[in-house]
Every structure is written in C-alpha cells, then in structure tokens.
C-alpha cells in the first residue's frame, strides 16, 4: 500500500515535469521565432523619425505607437509603420521625397507625444527663463550629397536644394568653383553644413534628378565617430578631458639609436 502511494506520487511528479518541459520547449521555440521577428523590425535602419526623437534604441523602447504625432502633423508628413513597409510597426516615420518635414515653429507632433519618445527639451531653448520651441535644434537626420549625380557638379546651374532649404546659407551653402571642363564658367556647388542641417528633407524633395542626389539619412547611419582617443588640443573644452590623466597612461616611442644612413641601408628597404 505504501509502495503504491509512493508510485502514484512519483507518477504525478513525472507527468508534471514532462508537461513543464514540454511547455518550456514550446515557449522557447515560440520565443525564438517571435524574437527574430521583433529583432528584424527593430533593426530597420533607414527610418527618419519626427523632430525631437530620442536615439533610435530609446525611441523604440519608449514609443507607445498611438499615432498622436501623426494626427498632429498638419502636412501629413508623418506615417505609422504598417506591415509591409519594413519599419517597426506603429512607429512614426517620414519619407522626405514624398512629404518632407516643414519644420513648424510650434512643433505640434512633439507637443502631442504622450510617451516622452519625442523629447521636448531637445527641440526648445531657454529664452528669458522660459523654454520656447526651437525647431532649428531638431536633428531628424542629415542631408547627404552624391556628387556623381548632382548636376551642379556637371557645371549646370540648379540650386534647387539650396533654394528649398529652410535654413538657406546655413544648412546648405553655395560654394563657387572653377569649371575646369569649359575653362570659362563657374560651378555653383551645394555644400551641406551638419551644424545647421535638421534633416527636414526639403532639399531631397526639391532635387531635380530622377532619384534624388541629395537625400536625408538618419544621423546614426550617416555619421562616423572619432572615438575618445583623439583630443582637440586647440579646443579648451576638449582639452579639459585630459584633466586628471596621469603621466603613467601616456606612451612615448623610444628614439632609434641607429644612424639615419644605416636605416637607409637596412635589408628591408634595399630588398636584399
């Protein structure tokens, strides 16, 4: 009798463990598939976000996907990602070639955002102790120019992007150059200044080539990164980074003891 009881107990435990393992197995398979899908969506790289958006990672984590920014946009610039357009589902983005951002001064999309994924502080400045909107501070992306297809570089006068730029002579300048091909004309070349460019995309929209030769890329895609090892010796703020660094961290190459003439006669130079 006692043995029997133990048997049933054991059997119960067995069934329980079996089922638990089965469930965990299924959950793992489901989780991997689901995770793959989520990861694929999260890594769509070419997404231009509304003004004031946090870094893509933070933005994706915080955005609640309600679409209030889309509703607030008076130009219908913003769209929500939907299945098939290869962007994270329900998150706002815009395609400048279709409708660029017209840089409203009161930035209704940011005002409407309830989730904090569009950061009000990043698109406002202090004035008389009060925060006021400043759309010029937004960095939705940065315009990039393909010189090969830009007709200005052929010597044709275009200026479409320059004239369309809401920050004309700041974000896009015209640079004069000699036209070497004809020898007697000038080139009027658009030049983008990343210090001012907000990534609104009006230039991309205005560009006259079939596929725009000036176009906006997200900052993270378009920009390189120096790293911390270079310090601008002429910039006081940057110099400050050296404060507190002790001598021990620096490395000096030892002077060679050889004569320069010996160096020239060394095997690996003469190839002997």
């Amino acid at each position: 009798m006692i043995v029997n009881l133990a048997d049933t107990e054991q059997k119960k435990r067995r069934v329980f463990l079996n089922q638990l393992l089965k469930s965990i197995g299924l959950a793992t398979v489901g989780g991997i598939a689901w995770g793959g899908l989520v990861d694929k969506m999260a890594s769509a790289p070419l997404c231009l976000r509304p003004p004031g958006a946090l870094s893509e990672r933070e933005f994706l984590a915080k955005c609640v996907r309600c679409g209030l920014c889309v509703q607030a946009c008076p130009y219908d610039t913003l769209k929500l990602g939907s299945p098939g357009d290869d962007r994270p589902l329900g998150t706002p983005y815009f395609i400048p070639r279709q409708i660029p951002c017209y840089m409203c001064e009161d930035i209704p999309c940011v005002e409407a955002c309830p989730s904090g994924s569009l950061d009000k502080a990043s698109v406002s400045r202090e004035e008389n102790g009060k925060l006021v909107w400043d759309i010029k501070q937004s960095r939705m992306g940065i315009a990039v120019l393909d010189r090969q297809s830009c007709v200005a570089f052929w010597g044709l006068q275009c200026e479409a992007c320059y004239r369309a730029c809401p920050l004309i002579d700041q974000a896009i300048n015209l640079k004069y150059d000699r036209n070497v091909r004809t020898g007697k004309h000038a080139l009027l070349l658009p030049k983008i200044n990343p210090e001012f460019c907000t990534g609104c995309g009006l230039c991309e929209r205005a560009c006259i080539t079939q596929k725009p030769s000036i176009f906006v890329l997200p900052f993270s895609v378009a920009q390189g990164e120096v790293g911390t090892n270079y310090i601008k010796g002429w910039d006081e703020l940057d110099e400050n980074r050296l404060k507190g660094v002790t001598e021990e961290g620096t490395f000096q190459t030892e002077r060679s003891k050889l004569d320069p003439v010996d160096y020239l006669n060394m095997d690996d130079l003469t190839g002997e």
């Binding site: 990861d39 999260a42 990672r57 994706l60 609640v64 996907r65 939907s82 589902l89």
Partner: peptide, 22 residues
C-alpha cells in the same frame, strides 16, 4: 530586445491602427 515585443507584432493593433491610419 529593448522594445515592446507584443506591440511590435500585435494583430489587434495592426487592425485598429490599420482602420485609423492605413
């Protein structure tokens, strides 16, 4: 993955958003 996992695939949201936003 650092983003709302069900919201990223939710058929409920796809339908509801689809009706409102496309």
């Amino acid at each position: 993955f650092g983003l709302a996992a069900f919201e990223s695939i939710s058929p409920v949201s796809i339908l509801h958003r689809g009706i409102i936003y496309g």
